[in-house]
């Protein structure tokens, strides 16, 4: 399990190409499945559609199994225990927002993505998605400034409050806005527990162990253990906004290196993603 991503890791390295490829694959899956969603489909069915789509294209292991949230579940309304994240029999209705979230492992590379959409028009979610752009910019800027992750988390929080939204990534385990992802060894048998692939969990656990010794954590949370500058590596960043029963998020990989050049010290793995294209089109 390697955590050392060095300054030598440039935008074009083969390693990043692998990650970029699987992230593209996952977003393609999200768009394909989103296009096939219709009234009456349940969250379970939507999750299965994602799983099958990716299996057909060679995905054998997962960081976590695909999730699907419909309606006010996109804002995690009344979520108390983590089991509530799992897909339910909630049916999709016209005008309902939805979020597809999946983390496939392909060829040893991990992606973790989140895709927000709605069946028909959801003006509130459109607005949330538009307002997420500022968060993407804020996160990159402050990571390049090497601000402690906890402070960046608080700044994201402040921006959300100013926009009038609730922080919904706080509902995730440990309240994380991001977590590290890494390469995963491919095994013939790759079981998962509670939806998370054991190989990936192992990686996360070993990161947590190393990080604990060196004073950093693979989980980017509001807590003290995240009070450290960004650790080089790949971070799946997932700001999640909620507004009165409607939620929206994106999730994609942020590459952090130990380069001195600010431009090279942190960058988004790929800018050719649905939400980024959308923001560009709206301008």
């Amino acid at each position: 399990m390697t955590t050392a991503v060095t300054g030598g890791l440039s935008v074009d390295s083969a390693e990043l190409r692998g990650f970029r490829q699987v992230q593209q694959l996952a977003y393609a899956c999200a768009e394909a499945v989103a296009a096939r969603l219709e009234p009456g489909i349940t969250e379970r069915e939507a999750a299965r559609m994602q799983r099958e789509w990716l299996r057909e294209r060679g995905v054998r292991d997962w960081f976590h199994l695909p999730f699907a949230w419909f309606g006010d579940r996109t804002a995690f309304v009344n979520f108390r225990i983590p089991l509530q994240f799992f897909p339910t029999n909630r049916r999709l209705e016209p005008g309902m927002p939805f979020i597809l979230d999946m983390a496939p492992v392909y060829d040893g590379y991990t992606a973790d993505i989140g895709y927000s959409g709605s069946l028909g028009i959801s003006p509130v979610q459109d607005r949330l998605m538009a307002d997420l752009e500022a968060h993407r910019e804020l996160i990159l800027r402050e990571v390049r400034e090497r601000r402690p992750l906890r402070e960046i988390y608080e700044d994201v929080d402040r921006l959300m409050v100013r926009q009038g939204y609730a922080n919904r990534h706080r509902a995730y385990p440990f309240g994380v806005i991001a977590h590290k992802v890494d390469r995963v060894k491919e095994r013939r048998w790759s079981p998962h527990v509670f939806g998370f692939g054991t190989q990936s969990l192992k990686g996360l656990a070993s990161d947590a162990l190393h990080g604990h010794r060196d004073g950093w954590s693979p989980l980017w949370s509001p807590y003290r253990f995240s009070d450290h500058p960004p650790q080089p590596g790949l971070w799946a960043v997932e700001p999640h906004l909620g507004f009165r029963g409607t939620g929206a998020k994106f999730e994609e990989i942020l590459v952090v290196t130990d380069s001195r050049d600010p431009e090279q010290s942190a960058f988004w793995l790929d800018d050719d993603l649905p939400h980024v294209r959308r923001w560009a089109e709206e301008k």
Binding site: V124, G164, F243, R244
Partner: peptide, 13 residues
Amino acid sequence: EAAVRTAEMSRLI
């Protein structure tokens, strides 16, 4: 800015 924001979101919901 905050008032404008509240009015805008009110119209959406």
